[in-house]
């Protein structure tokens, strides 16, 4: 009984802390480095970005992470995606994870749209033959069929984002991590994304960072409010969205 309950969590975060060493203005150059060493100045400032976070994400849950700029949301996503290593604490991820952080995961402007899809797929761990099966689906969702044999540098920025986003959601991963992407594309594409998220409910684990409280209320099953690296609210989307709006 206990065991099956454990498996139903997609992500378990325990006592997670992260800090960055930010170089101060007096830390660059060889002369300054030697002077600092002699005077015993560290040359950097330690900034704690995440402070002892604890939370779990259930399988199939749609979790929203909200908070002010600089509250640690993106750092948290990067740690969940194993891009950054935590200072303290543990993260357990159950299943394959597809991160979509900033725009265009590893897109290369000199390659064609099609080549980029396969490269991107490889980054996520999908072989060429697996990508063959997903390819049509991705292109169809992105609505970029006529452009697939053109170099990416000739795409508009909106088109690039559409392609990247389509790969992220069509690549069949267990956990999808999205950073501020609901505002991509034009109105028509946004509507399409919204519909996709509405239909998703319960079938895939999604973690999303957003500033749009409308989206939090509409799509999320649960939300977390980060403030100054700490979780100050965790629960129903409505409650968390209200708490977020009260911050300002």
């Amino acid at each position: 009984m206990k065991k099956s309950k454990k498996v139903s969590y997609a992500i378990t975060v325990r006592n997670l802390s992260k800090s960055f060493k930010l170089p101060t203005d007096k830390s660059w150059g060889l002369k300054q480095a030697i002077l600092n060493r002699i005077k015993g100045i560290k040359g950097y400032k330690k900034q704690e970005v995440l402070k002892n976070l604890n939370f779990k994400v259930k399988k199939g849950e749609f979790l929203g992470i909200v908070g002010r700029n600089g509250s640690g949301k993106s750092t948290l996503l990067k740690i969940l995606s194993e891009i950054y290593v935590p200072d303290k604490g543990t993260i357990k991820v159950n299943g394959t994870l597809v991160p979509f952080i900033e725009l265009g995961v590893g897109f290369n402007p000199e390659l064609t749209g099609k080549e980029n899809i396969y490269l991107n797929g490889a980054m996520l761990g999908f072989s060429n033959s697996e990508m063959d099966k997903m390819y049509d689906d991705i292109v169809e969702f992105a609505e970029l069929e006529p452009f697939m044999h053109q170099k990416l540098k000739n795409y508009s920025s909106g088109m690039q984002v559409r392609l990247a986003f389509s790969i992220a959601i069509r690549a069949r991963g267990d956990i999808l991590i999205l950073d501020e992407v609901l505002a991509v594309g034009d109105a028509a594409f946004q509507e399409k994304c919204n519909e996709y998220f509405r239909n998703l409910k319960g079938n895939q684990t999604v973690i999303i960072v957003t500033h749009d409280m409308e989206n939090v209320r509409r799509f999320c099953d649960r939300a977390i409010l980060l403030e100054d690296g700490k979780i100050i609210e965790d629960g129903k989307p409505d409650k968390v969205a209200d708490a977020y709006l009260k911050l300002f």
Partner: peptide, 11 residues
């Protein structure tokens, strides 16, 4: 050259 990749995905 590949710093872009490293900042966006883990491998």
């Amino acid at each position: 050259i590949r710093s872009d990749l490293m900042r966006k995905i883990s491998f």
